[in-house]
Amino acid sequence: MGKNIKVVPRHGREFKDRLYLPAIYNGMKITFKHLIDNVADSNAVDTLEYPEEQPTDITERYRGLHRLTHRDDDTMACVACFMCATACPSNCIFIEATERNDGKDEKMPSRFAIDTLECVFCGYCVEACPCDAIRMDTGIFSLIGNSREDFVLERDQLLKHKGVFGEENSRARK
């Protein structure tokens, strides 16, 4: 056995565990506590009246809708290297590259589209990006459209999305 393997004793073999009754008792205690609380005061119910009420517990690690970041001078950070498209497990990133003439870089995407209907929101594109040009920190969790095409987000739309955790620009492409 390798030295990095730790043997953990199996739980649930004791007499008390095998009776099941103490566990059922503990479970029902919690259930009835919530039932009494909720009946006594309906405002304490732990649900949201969505969409009037919006969630407040979205953290920095939450993978929301994608966005393309900007450089400090507000131009696009993406250089169309196709790393995100290569890493993408659902092949839903469509990039067409073109020449960039503003002296910032040589290459940029003329089209950068994400088919959010095919996207599995795994975040591999964010990890693969060498330019910190694509992020999922928009906090946007819902997208509404009338046709399939509405869910294919194009470059300019992705550039309009804002980051909600204070970091707006790319940290790799200044």
């Binding site: 250089v79 290297c81 790393m83 330019c131």
Partner: peptide, 9 residues
């Protein structure tokens, strides 16, 4: 080291 924009990559 501009491999992201280099066609030879």
């Amino acid at each position: 080291v501009d491999c992201p924009v280099c066609d030879q990559a």
